[in-house]
């Protein structure tokens, strides 16, 4: 058997095993925790996907995007539009639900990806702060547009979304996002993304088609953000445009900066850590009647930037450390 040498086949096997593992785990997890803790576990997984996808755009390709929540929102609404407004969800036989759900999530991802292309295009001309402002504006435009579209609830929000998102779905998608980014970086063109981040002019002088990689990063990043939005909607069963304001975008940015821009491991770790931290801080908020969360967040960022200017992990990955080093070869 030469499956060890065929990287596409191997990635496929890893993917299927991973999905089986997370769905298997999904049968146990809800019985271990109460509903409150389980909810946090789910949000943490959704945030992992959002952070890993933003990390591809901002951390790996170096395009500072402040509108990631906008992509989540588009994906969430597009998927929920299918399952709530278009399809007669109540009449779908249970056996077909996973298929319909997968299709809706995919649809949400595609719609977000198309918008990723639209936002990616100005990134060809804009850099740094200017791109950040454009993406910030984009996120707000999305929110205001949704606020004014009555068919998807407008300002009242969109209720009655079927609760199809399970632990298995959330963590399988997160796993797929991680796997996709890893495969992308390990591919023959993987270094091109990093070269764009390091020095765009030099990358172009080497013959890297910088346009292509910037737009590609935006499209893939937006796709996974859209899917994570779809998962979010089908877990909460209700969507509100205010959920995806720029504070949400900043939360994801904080996750990837804290984890270390460019490190997928860092993005995963920080997404999990910050989601749990936010909940751990709730008692404090109840006692003092003040929302300390953002203060702690900002304090944490300041401390981190002073002590570890490149984030928790810098650009390092899990496979750069001790025991896990042996899996590094799997990237190629």
């Amino acid at each position: 058997m030469n499956w060890k040498n065929n990287s596409t086949l191997r990635a496929g096997v890893v993917m299927i095993l991973g999905i089986l593992f997370f769905f298997g785990l999904g049968a146990i997890i809800p019985t271990l925790f109460n509903a409150y803790v389980f909810t946090i576990v789910m949000y943490a997984g959704i945030n992992v996907t959002a952070a890993v996808s933003l990390n591809l755009v901002t951390g790996i390709t170096g395009q500072f995007s402040m509108g990631h929540a906008g992509f989540m929102s588009v994906g969430a609404y597009a998927a929920a539009f299918l399952t709530t407004v278009i399809l007669p969800t109540a009449e779908i036989p249970p056996a077909l639900v996973p298929l319909v759900f997968a299709g809706s999530l995919f649809f949400g991802g595609i719609v977000a990806a198309i918008l990723g292309l639209v936002v990616g295009l100005p990134s060809l001309r804009l850099r740094g702060d200017y791109l950040a402002i454009v993406t910030l504006g984009f996120g707000e435009i999305i929110r205001v547009v949704i606020l004014n579209v009555e068919t998807i609830g407008g300002a009242r929000g969109l209720p009655g979304i079927p609760q199809w998102t399970s632990f298995g779905w959330v963590y399988s998608v997160a796993f797929l996002a991680v796997l996709t980014v890893r495969r992308l970086l390990a591919s023959s063109h993987g270094r091109a993304f990093l070269a764009v981040r390091e020095d765009e002019i030099a990358a172009e002088a080497m013959g890297v088609n910088t346009t292509r990689y910037k737009v590609l990063a935006f499209i893939i990043g937006a796709f996974f953000a859209g899917v994570s939005g779809g998962l979010f909607g089908h877990f909460l069963t209700y969507l509100n445009p205010a959920t995806f304001d720029f504070n949400r975008s900043f939360e994801i940015i904080i996750m990837i900066v804290l984890g270390g821009l460019g490190s997928t491991t860092g993005a995963v770790a920080a997404a999990l850590f910050l989601t749990f931290l936010r909940e751990a801080l709730r008692p404090l908020q109840e006692i003092t009647q003040l929302d300390f969360r953002m203060i702690i967040y900002s304090g944490l960022l300041i401390v981190l930037m002073l002590t570890r200017p490149n984030g928790f992990l810098g650009t390092k990955e899990l496979t750069d450390f001790g025991f896990f080093r042996r899996f590094k070869g799997l990237r190629q």
Partner: peptide, 26 residues
């Protein structure tokens, strides 16, 4: 036609080997 751009334009966070690899990118 290839060039060594002004101010060198090396990829600072990559290894020397990776820089050379990118030189042969196409």
């Amino acid at each position: 036609i290839s060039q060594a751009p002004e101010g060198r334009g090396i990829f600072a966070n990559m290894t020397v080997a990776e820089n050379l690899e990118l030189g042969a990118y196409l």
